[in-house]
């Protein structure tokens, strides 16, 4: 039940924080938040490395690959975009 509390409160925090992001930055917001959702990597690491072997470990390793693509790709591409947003110095 505690977890549901955490979930609901986090949704509210999300709405508060994200509604302040200007449309100018909506694409980086999407790719950046996307990278954050790759946090399942943490679970994947345990599945892959817990030494249980068998189907579970194979699936776990596959999950590590997928999650790492999501995390690394997402953060890098976001950084690439944000770097381009510049104000002209006068």
């Amino acid at each position: 039940m505690n977890e549901i509390y955490v979930f609901v409160l986090a949704i509210f925090v999300g709405f508060e924080v994200i509604s302040k992001v200007p449309p100018l930055l909506h694409t980086p917001l999407m790719s950046g938040s996307n990278a954050i959702s790759g946090i399942t990597l943490v679970g994947a690491l345990i599945s892959s490395g817990a030494g249980h072997g068998g189907l579970g470990a194979v699936i776990g390793t596959l999950a590590v690959v997928c999650a790492t693509i999501n995390v690394v790709g997402g953060f890098l591409v976001t950084d690439r975009m944000l770097e381009m947003f510049k104000k002209k110095e006068k």
Partner: peptide, 15 residues
């Protein structure tokens, strides 16, 4: 894992 729940909820709200 609460961290996963929080992070996921943030992204869910954003989407």
């Amino acid at each position: 894992n609460n961290m996963l729940i929080i992070s996921g909820a943030l992204v869910g709200a954003s989407g």
